[in-house]
Computed example of a mutant assay.
Amino acid sequence: MRKWGLLLSLVLIIGVLAGCSEKSGDKSIKLAYVAWDSEIASTNVVREVLETKLGYKVEMLQVDAGPMWTGIADGSADAMVAAWLPSTHASYMEKYASDIEDLGPNLNGTKTGLTVPAYMDITSIEDLKNADTLTALDGQIIGIEPGAGIMMATEKAMEEYALSDYKLVESSSAAMAQELQKAYDAQKPIVVTGWTPHWMFAKMDLKYLEDPKGVYGGDEQIHTVVRKGLKEDKADAYAFLDKFEWTPDDMAAVMVAIQEGASPEDAAKDWVAANEDKVNAWVEGIE
């Protein structure tokens, strides 16, 4: 009986210690992202580094832009690398600035705006008011998910440029790119909500329509945003996220690989393996 009592006590002590260790060193993290090709690429690269270099179990939360920001602000998600600032996500930043921590840019040189194939003979958003152009485009601007910053900017552009005869078609990033590719292959006119970096600019000869009223703003950055308290809870993950920074060419390499048939996980894994020096710099000195 005494042996059984000692054994039971030992099991209980080990269980308590294991529970304390698990609680204090929780190696799980939730990344929120929107299903844009650019953010699918970046978030999967971040996941690959967190899992293979820092030993985390990563949960990916694919949501629309609004819930992505809300999730970071209320703590139901830990981090995102998908905040387009200062213009595209300006309304979300204004709303949640006091509830999140902005770690700054992870990518410089982004741009958003209305995009057309280079073979179209229009150059400005103003040109969309032309009756022949309106007819050729069937009165449609092909958009992405409702609530996305670029969709809100496009709604504003339609007001500023008096494009009331047009309909902004809600779809998704993938559906928009499919429609663009189909029209491009047939050399037909089309206008879409576009942004760079995006694989479609590598695969097709496209151009942004000039925006003389400045509705879409100038060049932007993509920022890393984390929940309050992440630095204290998961110091190593926080340190990596704070260091994470890459280039439009880096992102484009992952996006093109995915577009050509690789899974997002495999494309990220291949990029991380091929860019060891850059990845090591992100995690150097992190314990």
Rank of each mutant, 00 (worst) to 15 (best):
C20N: 07
C20L: 12
S21W: 11
E22D: 14
E22T: 02
K23S: 06
K23P: 04
K23G: 04
S24Q: 09
G25V: 11
G25N: 15
D26L: 13
D26Q: 05
D26K: 03
D26F: 06
K27S: 00
K27Q: 04
K27C: 04
S28T: 06
S28Y: 05
I29L: 00
I29F: 02
I29R: 00
I29N: 00
K30P: 05
K30M: 08
L31K: 01
L31M: 07
L31S: 03
L31F: 06
L31D: 02
A32R: 01
A32C: 10
Y33D: 02
Y33H: 09
A35S: 15
A35W: 14
A35V: 11
W36P: 04
D37S: 15
D37E: 13
D37M: 09
D37Y: 13
D37A: 15
D37W: 09
S38W: 12
S38G: 11
E39M: 15
E39F: 08
E39R: 13
E39S: 11
E39P: 11
E39G: 10
E39A: 13
I40L: 05
I40F: 04
A41I: 06
A41T: 08
A41C: 07
S42F: 13
S42V: 10
S42T: 12
S42N: 15
S42C: 13
T43A: 10
T43K: 00
T43P: 05
T43W: 04
T43F: 05
N44E: 07
N44I: 07
N44W: 05
N44R: 13
V45H: 00
V45A: 02
V46N: 01
V46L: 07
V46I: 13
R47Q: 06
E48D: 06
E48Q: 07
E48K: 09
E48Y: 08
E48P: 04
V49H: 01
V49W: 02
V49N: 02
V49R: 02
V49I: 14
L50E: 02
L50F: 03
L50K: 03
E51T: 09
E51H: 07
E51R: 01
T52H: 06
T52I: 15
T52M: 13
K53S: 08
L54N: 03
L54F: 04
L54M: 07
G55T: 08
G55Q: 06
G55N: 05
G55L: 05
G55E: 02
G55M: 08
K57P: 01
K57M: 08
K57T: 07
V58H: 01
V58Q: 00
E59L: 12
E59Q: 11
M60G: 04
M60I: 13
M60E: 04
M60S: 01
L61I: 14
Q62M: 10
Q62F: 15
Q62K: 11
V63D: 00
V63M: 02
D64Q: 15
D64Y: 12
D64C: 13
D64R: 11
D64L: 12
D64V: 14
A65E: 08
A65G: 12
A65R: 01
A65C: 14
A65Y: 01
G66Y: 11
G66L: 12
G66C: 13
G66T: 07
P67C: 05
W69S: 00
T70C: 10
T70E: 13
T70R: 10
T70W: 10
G71D: 03
G71Q: 04
